[in-house]
Each structure stands twice: as C-alpha cells, then as structure tokens.
C-alpha cells in the first residue's frame, strides 16, 4: 500500500447538489472563486510536486547529461533508443508484468478468501482482522531486508523450516522462486488491503439477492459467481487498478529483497531506472526508462479517471 489512487472514490457520482453554502443569491463568479480558493493549495502542491517535476523529467529524457558534462545537451530521442528500445528494457518490462499479474492473482484470490472468512463475523474475527492488518502498515524497504534475511539459503529460518520437509530450495538462486519471493513479499503486505476493501464491500451488499439465490438452491460457488461478484464489481475494479499501479512501480522491497537477482531475473523497470540514475549517473537514460513505464501505464490512468467519474 503506497500512495495509491483513491479507494475512497469508488462510487462518487457527478457533483451532488449545488452549492449549499449560504446565502443562495450570491453571484456565481464569487462562488466559483471561493471554490477555487478552497482547492488552491491542491493546485499549488500538485503542480509543484507532480506536474512540474514530470515536465522536467521529460526534458531530461531528451538531453544528455553525464557527470563529466553536467550541462545538458539536447539529443532528441537518443536516450530512448539507447535505453528503452533494448532487449534489456524489454526484459525488465517482462519482469514487471510478471509481478503485476502474479501479484494481482495472488492478492485477489487470497484477499477475497480472507474477506469471506472475516465476513462471517464469527467470534474473535476482530482479533484476526487486527493481526491480518499489520503487514499492510509496515515499511516496505525494511520488510524487504527482513525477508532477505529469512530466506538466506544457508542460515535463514526458511531453510530450516523447509529442511524439515526435506526440501532444500534456494529461493534467491532460482529465477522462478526469486520472482515468487518478490510476489510473496508484495502480497504479504498487500493482501490485507484487498481483504479490507472487499470485506467492506460485502458488508454493504443488499441481503435479498443472496438469500434469493440460496432459496433457489444455488451453492456457494454459484452464488459467488453469479450474484456476489457482479455486485462487488465496482469495488473490485477500483481495488484492482490501485494494486496494478502500485505493483508496476514497486521499488523498495525488490531493492532490498533480491537486488534484482539472480542475474536480472527480478530486475524490474523501476530498478533499472534507479540503477541508470543513481549508480551509473546517466540521468537521461534513467528519465527515459521511468517515463516509458509511466507511458505504458497510461491506459490504467485513463481507466481510472473514467471509472471514478470525478
């Protein structure tokens, strides 16, 4: 869970009622100016922290600046040719895509299952919810470090546990397992988020259709498939988008869990951009790579704006 798009905007409709502030006969212009006044801090922050830096990054991606030549020279699309249209970038994009798909599937299946369990509100479910919620709150960078520690193939606790079952897998050396590990860490932290949202969605569902389905003799799966899931769709879609964006840009816990290894098996696009920028100091390459990711995520952004109907 990072600075994600709003869970809070799921079914916001067009502006509710007209201006309810008193008195009603004030001229429109003044009312508009006042509304602008309310959001002016947002304008300032969004421009200063988001839009201007993004523009700056676009400009950086079109220039060459190295350590020896800190004065930028315009080079057109060279950075994109050298850093984005390459096999390496394609590989990193593939890794990011795997993380997104595997992460979404895991987090939704497990999150949904746990939401169903919580929704029954059996005795003690609040305690379970409290415990399940904790991983969501923790610092991703530090979580990555501790998982790396637990998965140390010689000394780590996971080695000891799987040893009991006669398994001696080295999670950090096998490309598939290493990717799985990243997905596991991400899911460990984010299943609670999906769970909470879905459980909240379930609480607000009307009882009648579900009861009707039960009376018709539909089993759990059929009720879920044909009644509950369609009703939950708005919540699910928004949660999906939120998670999708977040996984696509994860950095902290890959950086600290696998460092992109083995080889480049968990080298995601964000890690690639980080290395170009902060290890090799090729600011142009780094900006081009990061912006390429942002561009690829644009459809998600578009969907998001559409769905939230702000």
């Amino acid at each position: 869970m990072s600075a994600a798009p709003p869970a809070g905007a799921v079914d916001v409709h067009r502006p509710g009622r007209a201006d309810t502030t008193p008195p009603a006969r004030r001229p429109r212009l003044v009312a508009s100016l006042r509304a602008l006044g309310y959001v002016s801090p947002i304008w300032v922050f969004v421009l200063a922290v988001g839009i201007v830096p993004t523009g700056y990054a676009v400009w950086m991606s079109l220039t060459e600046q190295t350590l020896t030549a800190p004065y930028p020279a315009f080079v057109g699309l060279d950075n994109y040719v050298q850093a984005v249209f390459t096999a390496q970038f394609a590989g990193a994009l593939g890794v990011t895509l795997i993380f997104v798909l595997a992460g979404l599937i895991t987090q939704f299946v497990v999150g949904y299952l746990l939401a169903v369990c919580l929704h029954q509100q059996l005795r003690g479910f609040r305690i379970a919810r409290t415990i399940l919620l904790i991983p969501m709150l923790l610092t991703p960078a530090v979580v990555g470090l501790t998982w790396n520690f637990m998965f140390n193939p010689d000394l780590g606790v996971v080695q000891a546990i799987q040893g009991v079952f006669g398994i001696h897998a080295n999670w950090l050396a096998d490309p598939t397992l290493a990717r799985l590990l990243v997905v596991m860490v991400d899911s460990w932290m984010n299943v609670p988020f999906v769970m909470l949202l879905v459980a909240a969605g379930m609480t607000s569902l009307p009882e009648e259709p579900i009861e009707a389905a039960a009376i018709d003799g539909a089993g759990w799966w059929k009720t879920t498939r044909y009644v509950v899931l369609p009703m939950l769709r708005p919540v699910l879609v928004i949660t999906l988008l939120v998670r999708c964006v977040d996984i696509a840009r994860i950095f902290d816990h890959i950086f600290t869990t696998t460092q992109g290894g083995p080889g480049t098996a968990t080298q995601s696009v964000t890690l690639e951009a980080y290395n170009s920028t902060f290890q090799f100091f090729q600011f142009g390459h780094g900006a081009a790579i990061a912006l390429a990711l942002a561009l690829i995520m644009f459809p998600v952004y578009f969907l998001y704006v559409r769905l939230t109907k702000i």
Binding site: T66, L67, T68, A173, D174, P175, G260, G261, P262, G263, T264, A265, Q267, N275, Q279, F280
Partner: peptide
C-alpha cells in the same frame, strides 16, 4: 574510468545469471 561502476554491474549480473544456470 567512470564507467567502471556500470561495467562491474553488468559483469556481476551476467556472472550471477551463469552461476544460477540461466545462461
């Protein structure tokens, strides 16, 4: 040379790929 950091990184990643049977 200033490129050493990048060279070390590329070689290390590739060696690791070979050591883990990916290349």
């Amino acid at each position: 040379i200033p490129e050493t950091a990048q060279i070390i990184s590329v070689i290390s990643q590739t060696i690791n790929s070979m050591a883990t049977g990916q290349l």
